[in-house]
Amino acid sequence: MQITGAVALVTGANRGLGREFARQLVERGATVYATARRPETIDLEGVVPLRLDITDAAQVRAVAERAGDVTLLVNNAGISTGADLVTGELELAHREMDTHFWGTAAMLRAFAPVLGRNGGGAAVNVLSALSWFSVRGAGAYHAAKAAEWALTNSARLELADQGTLVTAVHLGAADTDITRDFDGPKISPREVADAVFDGVEADATEVLVDPWSDLVKATLSDSPTERDARIAAALAG
């Protein structure tokens, strides 16, 4: 998969990681559809802005018809409600799942035929180290990202026969609006985009953007108690 000459579509491209993904894709020589619920908020030059709420089935269908030449799909759009699963507001948990899981699933279902017709291409799902662990105040986000990780694994197998690369991206905290209240270390959106697109060009099925993601993945073979303790110690340290 080569970025130069690709036709890319980025969801949630009006700010944060999505904006940087779209900006760098243009810089690397791709044609870019930049989508957002309010496309008038997209301030990048050299992109084609499109209206898209990934939880709106009609809008997903319309964008897939409009952008029928896409060879690289970047599923970036997301939310963070700060809700817990047992004691938090259930409506917020539904919003997280509707966005990260069902919204991403809708995009993959709509664009899989597009990618197949255009030679296979690639789909990138922006996940999180929180796909693999939880903390208080992030239960809904963790569950939705864990479900999106499972979706990514299934899509990779389902789309292999048509030659579509499916890449899972895991990272800790990037310096964006969604993490403005987080006091821990953050990486720049540019670093994330560099790692993601270098990984896509290397046909990577998984990109671990930062040391935090490496650490969390290494705990997956631990017992839940051991994993919680290791992660708590890392967060405190």
Rank of each mutant, 00 (worst) to 15 (best):
residue 137 G to D: 15
residue 133 F to Y: 09
residue 189 P to H: 11
residue 143 A to V: 15
residue 152 T to Q: 04
residue 154 S to I: 11
residue 143 A to I: 06
residue 137 G to K: 11
residue 153 N to S: 01
residue 172 G to T: 02
residue 157 L to Q: 14
residue 147 A to Y: 13
residue 165 L to W: 12
residue 179 T to I: 02
residue 154 S to Y: 10
residue 164 T to F: 10
residue 153 N to E: 13
residue 147 A to W: 10
residue 161 D to S: 14
residue 183 D to I: 06
residue 133 F to C: 01
residue 171 L to E: 04
residue 131 S to K: 01
residue 166 V to E: 04
residue 184 G to A: 10
residue 187 I to C: 05
residue 189 P to N: 13
residue 175 D to L: 05
residue 177 D to V: 14
residue 155 A to E: 05
residue 139 G to D: 00
residue 131 S to M: 06
residue 174 A to D: 09
residue 133 F to R: 00
residue 188 S to N: 02
residue 132 W to N: 00
residue 152 T to D: 00
residue 159 L to A: 01
residue 184 G to Y: 02
residue 174 A to Q: 02
residue 186 K to G: 13
residue 158 E to I: 14
residue 164 T to A: 14
residue 173 A to M: 10
residue 143 A to L: 11
residue 151 L to K: 10
residue 138 A to R: 09
residue 135 V to R: 14
residue 136 R to A: 11
residue 157 L to M: 15
residue 171 L to S: 01
residue 134 S to M: 06
residue 168 A to T: 02
residue 165 L to S: 09
residue 188 S to Y: 02
residue 161 D to W: 08
residue 165 L to E: 04
residue 178 I to H: 07
residue 144 A to Q: 06
residue 147 A to F: 14
residue 137 G to R: 12
residue 164 T to G: 04
residue 175 D to I: 07
residue 168 A to S: 15
residue 164 T to M: 13
residue 131 S to N: 03
residue 147 A to P: 09
residue 174 A to H: 03
residue 130 L to N: 11
residue 139 G to S: 01
residue 173 A to H: 15
residue 177 D to Y: 13
residue 169 V to K: 06
residue 151 L to R: 02
residue 140 A to Q: 00
residue 148 E to L: 06
residue 149 W to S: 03
residue 185 P to S: 11
residue 169 V to D: 01
residue 149 W to D: 00
residue 178 I to S: 11
residue 145 K to F: 06
residue 177 D to S: 14
residue 145 K to S: 05
residue 130 L to G: 04
residue 157 L to C: 07
residue 134 S to L: 04
residue 150 A to E: 12
residue 184 G to C: 07
residue 174 A to C: 04
residue 168 A to D: 09
residue 185 P to E: 12
residue 162 Q to W: 06
residue 154 S to D: 02
residue 171 L to N: 02
residue 155 A to F: 05
residue 158 E to C: 00
residue 150 A to N: 07
residue 172 G to A: 04
residue 165 L to T: 08
residue 140 A to K: 02
residue 172 G to C: 07
residue 185 P to K: 04
residue 159 L to Y: 08
residue 145 K to E: 06
residue 142 H to F: 14
residue 137 G to V: 10
residue 158 E to Q: 11
residue 185 P to A: 15
residue 164 T to W: 12
residue 174 A to N: 03
residue 176 T to A: 10
residue 136 R to D: 04
residue 180 R to T: 12
residue 136 R to W: 03
residue 136 R to V: 10
residue 164 T to D: 08
residue 138 A to Q: 07
residue 130 L to K: 11
residue 156 R to F: 01
residue 140 A to N: 02
residue 130 L to C: 04
residue 182 F to Y: 08
residue 170 H to Q: 08
residue 161 D to F: 05
residue 138 A to G: 15
residue 144 A to M: 10
residue 189 P to F: 08
residue 140 A to D: 00
residue 163 G to Y: 04
residue 170 H to S: 08
residue 139 G to K: 03
residue 146 A to Q: 07
residue 146 A to M: 09
residue 150 A to C: 12
residue 174 A to Y: 03
residue 145 K to H: 01
residue 178 I to L: 15
residue 189 P to W: 14
residue 136 R to E: 02
